[in-house]
């Protein structure tokens, strides 16, 4: 196919993989036998009852259509639309993430500017960074006494490290030439920070922010499985308890789509602050 561009060929291949994958999945699910086909023994041992199994993709599409055509219904604590659940998750992720950014970026600036602050804080960062964010959950629940706020705290604690380290790294790496330009133009400390160091370090800082939002979205699902109540993580766990695997698969897909959208937003921001030397 020499007439097709690279992108067109890639798209064609993607569609092909999707279709083949779905067909294999659909074909791999054994059909439930109708009651009439069962032997007497099977009927007596409960073989006629609805069996739980991995649903074929066609069922997942039907479910997705149902859910997405009415995403914001609210029929009680255990029956809310997918839009409401995702909305809760995004709200938690963004609140924890914003708080982390408010702390991490100025602190990262300080660490990046001052070798003393870097050396003093580095041991703490190195110990705190590898802790799984969920390990904080019991402590957070006890101290904060609120499951909602604890989930936000867990997001805060997991998104802070990449932003902190990347900001410090970016600020420390600003070329001395550019700082000298600021100095010879008598820019004050604040002015230098905003007009020279921030734009110079912005690509590194935004990379840290992008890594953080990715981690935050990974962690919120697990956190909501623990704290319960609302959110996409709780939704997955609740549908598992209902043994509704169709909903489980559908919500897994939605987690992927939302994660991709969040990442794309930061990729756009990254392009906006990028510069070529």
């Amino acid at each position: 196919m020499p007439s097709l561009s690279l992108n067109q060929r890639a798209l064609l291949m993607s569609v092909l993989i999707l279709v083949v994958g779905l067909l294999i999945w659909e074909a791999a699910i054994p059909a439930q036998k109708a009651v009439g086909e069962l032997t007497e023994y099977e009927r007596l041992t409960g073989g006629g009852a609805q069996k739980a199994g991995v649903p074929p993709p066609s069922q997942v599409f039907v479910k997705a259509w149902e859910e997405l055509s009415n995403p914001f219904y609210d029929a009680g604590p255990n029956d809310k639309g997918i839009g409401i659940q995702i909305g809760y998750s995004i709200y938690r992720v963004l609140s924890g993430y914003l708080m982390a950014a408010i702390v991490a970026i100025p602190l990262g600036f300080l660490i990046g500017m001052s070798p003393v602050a870097y050396k003093a804080l580095n041991p703490f960062i190195q110990v705190l960074r590898p802790i799984s964010p969920l390990a904080w959950m019991p402590l957070a629940l006890f101290i904060i006494q609120d499951s909602e706020a604890s989930a936000i705290f867990v997001i805060f604690i997991c998104s802070i490290w990449p932003m902190l380290l990347n900001t410090a790294f970016g600020v420390a790496g600003v070329r001395q030439d550019w700082v000298n330009v600021a100095r010879t133009h008598e820019l004050g400390h604040i002015k230098t920070a905003f007009t020279v160091i921030l734009p110079a370090a912005a690509p590194t800082i935004v990379t840290g922010m992008r890594i953080s939002i990715g981690i935050a979205w990974l962690v919120i699902v697990a956190a909501e499985m623990l704290v319960g109540g609302t959110g996409i993580g709780y939704y997955v766990w609740n549908e598992w308890n209902n043994l509704d695997l169709t909903s489980v698969i559908f919500s897994i897909m939605m987690i992927g789509v939302v994660g991709m959208l969040l990442d794309m937003a930061f990729a756009t921001l990254q392009r906006a602050v990028a510069y070529a030397e």
């Binding site: 030439d177 550019w178 000298n180 330009v181 020279v196 734009p199 110079a200 912005a202 602050v273 510069y275 070529a276 030397e277």
Partner: peptide, 9 residues
């Protein structure tokens, strides 16, 4: 400066 030191952004 020898290397121009323009701010690239």
């Amino acid at each position: 400066f020898q290397n121009y030191s323009l701010l690239p952004w």
